[in-house]
Design a protein around this nucleic acid. Structure first.
Lengths: 171, 171
DNA sequence: ACTCCCTGGTTCAACTTTTAAGCAATTACT
DNA sequence: AGTAATTGCTTAAAAGTTGAACCAGGGAGT
């Protein structure tokens, strides 16, 4: 097949996306590094745990929720554990497994820093979007995620090719 | 001010965005690592140079175009120089300056790998967006970039607070 | 020319991420 | 039960990134 290049409009959109995503990651990482002493991803680990039943999640489920590799998560949790924000527990139902648990200290960090984070996201993103655009953004991004994940045909992640589900957390 | 949290719709959009951007970066990095032997950002360095007049750009201009810090660019160019894809030249009009130049070898790598990259971006992003959505995406992202950059008030980049312009390349 | 400050770019040390192994527990199969 | 393949998670080594510090060159004011 002769290469299907991007159209001019697609190129403009793609470049705008690349610029925005780099700038955004930068601003958010910096803000959280300042206020919470950790990069955005690590904050997301805490945030995700805080919403999980019993504030705990299997490592693999957490990685899946965050869309990152297990390896990356292992390092993140190790660091957060050193900080006292997270604790690891063995999984009773599967002796291989381990469960990340948000500590009270971690919850406190989250509570303290969530407002600043929300403010940053709002200032960078939502304060200048119309409600329709918010909906558009969600649909567009959901479509992208879907296109990438619902893609059993080819190796998409090096780590763990198809996306699977596990369980165990509070039992 | 009592924290302006994100609305439910905004949260959904934000989470969809985070997931999509992580997955997307992952897929693209992996594809380019495979085909071009370099991460996406490094490919972007080559791509940006290839479109610049005389295939050359001052380091700071290149960093600005790519929305990355000069430090990060220094490392990228050093690596690409080792690969032979880029060459550094002194800037005649400012002895402090250096200019990154795309070599023929770099141009060849780009030509060879651009189709695969385009295909990946298309498959992950544009193949399932309507033309309206492409426009929406561009406008939304442009707005985000604008909100972050057009922000002289606060330190947005650690490196170089306000965004400026330079020149010199082919003169 | 002399100061003082700014700018362009690089470098260092600390940190994060990646990829490919690696290991132990579990499952599937016989 | 016995064994091979799979799964859950960690680790090692290499690569990339960050933020601060650094240095030489350029500019403005005197």
């Amino acid at each position: 097949m002769t290469t299907r290049w991007l159209t001019a409009e697609e190129q403009r959109a793609w470049r705008a996306y690349l610029a925005a995503s780099l700038l955004l990651e930068d601003v958010i990482d910096r803000q959280l590094q300042q206020e919470a002493g950790m990069p955005h991803l690590y904050y997301s680990v805490l945030a995700t745990l805080s919403e999980a039943p019993d504030r705990r999640l299997r490592m693999t489920d957490l990685a899946e929720a965050l869309k990152i590799t297990r390896s990356r998560l292992t390092y993140a949790v190790t660091r957060l554990e050193k900080d006292g924000a997270v604790r690891r527990e063995g999984c009773p139902s599967d002796r291989r497994g381990s469960v990340a648990v948000l500590t009270d200290e971690g919850a406190t960090v989250l509570e303290r820093t969530a407002p600043g984070h929300a403010e940053t996201v709002r200032a960078a993103v939502f304060d200048h979007l119309t409600p329709e655009q918010v909906g558009d953004l969600e649909r567009i991004c959901a479509g992208i995620a879907e296109a990438i994940q619902g893609d059993g045909r080819q190796a998409v992640r090096a780590d763990e090719l198809p996306w699977r589900r596990r369980s165990c957390p509070s039992g």
